[in-house]
């Protein structure tokens, strides 16, 4: 065996399992789901080709499609800036030279190691309308609290609040970015008379802009795919159908799951999955294009 062939052999020997795994468990199911999105497939009978009918039904007739799009977009638009802002603010605080800094960093990161489902259950009890902790506290002040988890007006804001507890990972990434900002730049700016805000605005932000961009991209994709939090919230609230009340927490991912595994409309669910894929692709592409204007890589 010559050197080149040997190299090829060893490459495939080590990369082979991953390639086979990707092809068998990712690529093939993706292509299969693309085909199914053009079929009527209720699992118990073979798929039947129906062209674009699934897509047409979603856009024109399905009562849950647009509400789930709306819920997901509203969640993303409100939650993402709040989550990024909270993570950055905490990272800035935890980057200060304070006593026990390592301890505080660990404390603030701790919530992130818990599954979102745990938050959904615990906060579900806190926000419960009848006898929940929040409403009991409000009642002490003579305030009649709202039906936080069972009102379509409040259920989504409650979920946004709950989701913010997952700030640990972006916070750690921000911390990493902040520690790479050269101290000399701050010292020079300080000597030139720059205040704290000016230093943050003109040094910190531009230099951590790649990290912000990374967190925005990951956060955006995560927000558009929210499932576990919404599902656990529904279970904790003993909703007969996930996504209630009145579809107020029917996230796109949850709706897709329901269509696929609750009601076995696999063709319809596949169409939904591909629409989500296309949407995330387009949004991420736009994100990258726009990032050229505000992300600085120092080159």
């Amino acid at each position: 065996m010559n050197h080149r062939r040997a190299e090829t052999f060893w490459f495939w020997l080590f990369a082979g399992p991953a390639v086979v795994g990707f092809a068998a468990f990712s690529l093939w199911p993706m292509l299969e789901s693309l085909w199914l999105s053009f079929c009527s497939y209720e699992v118990i009978a073979p798929p039947r080709f129906i062209g674009l009918q699934n897509y047409a039904y979603l856009f024109a007739h399905d009562l849950s499609f647009w509400p789930s799009v709306k819920v997901t977009l509203v969640f993303t638009v409100i939650q993402l800036p709040l989550a990024i802002g909270a993570a950055l603010a905490l990272a800035l605080l935890l980057n200060q030279p304070v006593r026990g800094r390592g301890f505080w960093r660990a404390v603030y990161f701790l919530p992130s190691i818990l599954p979102q489902a745990v938050f959904a259950v615990v906060f579900g009890y806190i926000f419960q309308a009848d006898g929940g902790l929040l409403n009991r506290l409000l009642a002490l002040g003579g305030i009649h609290g709202a039906a936080w988890t069972t009102s379509p007006t409040w259920a989504l804001p409650v979920l946004i609040v709950i989701s913010l507890w997952g700030f640990g990972y972006p916070m750690v990434i921000f911390l990493g970015g902040l520690q790479n900002v050269p101290r000399e730049l701050y010292e020079a700016a300080h000597i030139d008379g720059a205040g704290a805000w000016a230093r943050f605005r003109h040094i910190t932000l531009p230099l951590i802009s790649p990290v912000i961009f990374f967190n925005v991209v990951m956060g955006l994709i995560g927000s558009l795919k929210v499932f576990d939090l919404a599902y656990a919230f529904s279970v904790a609230q003993a909703q007969p159908t996930p996504g209630g009340p009145a579809r107020a927490t029917l996230f796109y991912g949850l709706n897709l799951y329901q269509q696929a595994f609750g009601y076995f409309h696999m063709g319809l669910a596949s169409a939904m999955a591909w629409l989500l894929f296309a949407f995330i692709l387009v949004v991420t592409f736009i994100n990258f294009r726009v990032s050229r204007r505000w992300v600085h890589y120092g080159d």
Binding site: L63, S64, S151, P152, P240, T241, G244, P245, A246, R247, Q258, G262, Y263
Partner: peptide
């Protein structure tokens, strides 16, 4: 065959909205 799905996902949200005064 689709009774549960129809009642829970198609009808029930409208009933929920009625209860909420919408």
């Amino acid at each position: 065959p689709n009774y549960i799905e129809i009642m829970l996902t198609v009808v029930q949200p409208e009933i929920d909205r009625m209860l909420l005064g919408e």
